[in-house]
């Protein structure tokens, strides 16, 4: 297990975002974090990334609490853009290189080209789709142990989605794990090992995707519709 979450709770003044989540992640596997908007996916990811402190519960990364060490190994991509307006695509690479020792400049250049971005492009002039691709390129250019991608397919057209899926698969090495949240379940169906269904801050169904399909006689997409309809 590289990640273990026990009874995680995050309460805000008038809302419980995460309500007792138990979830473990193994090395070499791809996990889908599924659920509609507001179900707690993003809060859970932020807790794992160390950006939000849980109200209660425990969380360990390779047996240790979340902290400086885990942040070095975890590549988190949030839904909101995290670049300054004045930066060029090239600057984003430099900024990442300064921050993360596992950032691979060559891989970044390769991904930027694949995403049809230019190194001189200014981030503030990028369309929302291109900004989304830039976030993916920067995150996946890290050679992290755990990648957490929050809605990586949002704002990405159907043709480019295929590229993104392939790029995600390339980063899903035997020595890395991946946690992907999305409400575009169809796109994830084929690439995941495990599915985690979250509803109102709790895990309502969890398991190996192939086993879930076999035991329920339904695809992950159909299970999703059944759980959240």
């Amino acid at each position: 297990m590289i990640l273990q979450c026990n009874d995680l709770v995050k309460k805000y003044i008038n809302k419980t975002a995460v309500n007792g989540i138990n979830f473990d992640a193994e090395k070499g596997k791809i996990y889908a974090l599924l659920g509609p908007n507001g179900s707690g996916k993003t809060t859970l990811m932020k807790i794992i990334a160390g950006l939000v402190k849980p109200t209660s519960g425990t969380l360990t990364y390779k047996g240790n609490p979340i902290g400086v060490e885990s942040k070095k190994r975890v590549a988190y991509m949030s839904t909101e853009p995290f670049f300054y307006n004045f930066m060029s695509v090239e600057d984003v690479g430099k900024y990442y290189k300064d921050f993360f020792e596992d950032f691979d400049v060559k891989r970044y250049e390769e991904l930027i080209e694949r995403m049809e971005l230019g190194m001189k492009d200014k981030t503030k002039t990028l369309s929302s789709g291109l900004a989304a691709k830039l976030k993916i390129a920067a995150t996946l250019a890290r050679k992290a142990e755990l990648y957490m991608l929050d809605e990586p397919l949002n704002g990405i057209d159907i043709i480019a989605r295929e590229k993104i899926i392939n790029t995600i698969l390339e980063s899903a090495r035997e020595d890395s794990s991946m946690l992907i949240s999305s409400h575009l379940v169809d796109e994830l169906e084929k690439i995941i090992d495990n599915a985690v269904f979250i509803k109102n801050g709790s895990v309502v169904l969890y398991g190996d995707a192939e086993e879930l399909r076999a035991s329920h006689g339904k695809s992950i997409v159909e299970l999703y519709k059944e759980i959240y309809a």
Partner: peptide, 8 residues
């Protein structure tokens, strides 16, 4: 990559 499926 070819079939866009999970490596496992």
């Amino acid at each position: 990559f070819k079939y866009k499926i999970n490596p496992n």
